[in-house]
């Protein structure tokens, strides 16, 4: 792993085509370890597409994603997670029919080792592992304040809490890098404040964060660095105060409903 302050992940000339359409073209940015890096831009700018490429859901048509010193392009999503990159989804993905606790426990499996036969025979080692899965999951739920909801059917959680559960689930994989895709969507004012708090705490744990957000106040408040995208291309990058005054950024946002607050 890189030393603190160095780049944890380097996105180089990343591009992807869907059909004949260039959805993202030649986007590059570096995210330094321990920082919060925001990706912003109007709808359809390619932000989620970039996260999908980082987490291995889409395979880029060109470019590299250097993480921990090696190119992770081509790794399937579960391998990317094993390498230490976790994420949440813009459209919440709850495992229906599983409890809140079980939803988070699923994310612990990537850090387990007991084999099938021992699991079925319930050997002491398997029991210990199962207990540790549950304990770590509860710990993650406690972090986002959902520990008392653990036995609920996850589908019955209110919207904002589903988002928090997704964060707990992502954290349960023990990531070095956390990708948050519009975490504040659908949250009320109080919940957003809470969220800011969590994201800062996550950073204090030493986890690097890439954040997609439409809530500009939130972005400006917590980001160390911002990359602005428009029509699949990078149009600006810099610290919040610089981005706020960049004429290209203002132009890209003009006429859209997500203007600066």
């Amino acid at each position: 792993m890189n030393t603190s302050g160095g780049a944890l992940i380097e996105v180089e000339d990343l591009g992807i085509r869907f059909g004949g359409l260039l959805a993202v073209s030649d986007v590059s940015f570096h995210v330094s370890e321990g920082s919060i890096h925001a990706l912003i831009g109007p709808n359809g700018a390619g932000k989620t597409t970039i996260l999908n490429m980082i987490s291995g859901i889409y395979r880029p048509s060109r470019g590299k994603i250097i993480y921990g010193g090696r190119n992770i392009v081509g790794l399937p999503p579960y391998m990317v997670t094993r390498e230490g990159i976790a994420r949440t989804f813009q459209n919440i993905q709850v495992f229906e029919g599983l409890s809140v606790l079980e939803n988070v426990m699923v994310a612990r499996h990537v850090r387990t080792s007991v084999n099938l036969l021992s699991t079925i025979l319930k050997t002491p080692k398997a029991r210990r592992e199962e207990k540790s899965i549950a304990d770590k999951a509860v710990e993650a739920l406690r972090f986002v304040g959902l520990a008392d909801r653990k036995d609920m059917d996850a589908m019955n959680l209110p919207y904002g809490q589903k988002r928090l559960m997704e964060i707990a689930r992502a954290l349960a994989t023990e990531p070095h890098l956390l990708l948050l895709d519009e975490p504040s969507a659908g949250m009320n004012e109080a919940e957003v404040l809470n969220l800011v708090n969590f994201i800062n705490q996550i950073r204090e744990k030493g986890i690097t964060v890439i954040l997609i957000e439409h809530n500009m106040r939130l972005v400006m408040k917590i980001s160390d660095r911002i990359t602005v995208l428009d029509f699949g291309e990078k149009i600006a990058e810099g610290p919040p105060e610089e981005i706020q005054n960049d004429p290209r950024v203002i132009e890209a946002y003009l006429g859209t409903e997500n203007g600066y607050a």
Partner: peptide, 27 residues
């Protein structure tokens, strides 16, 4: 015992959201 193990949970997660489970580290 399968249902109450990590294997059972992985299967159920894959059943309802294969891609999401994949992203959560489930092969």
């Amino acid at each position: 015992s399968v249902r109450r193990s990590k294997y059972g949970r992985s299967m159920l997660a894959t059943k309802v959201g294969e891609l999401a489970a994949n992203v959560m580290g489930i092969n």
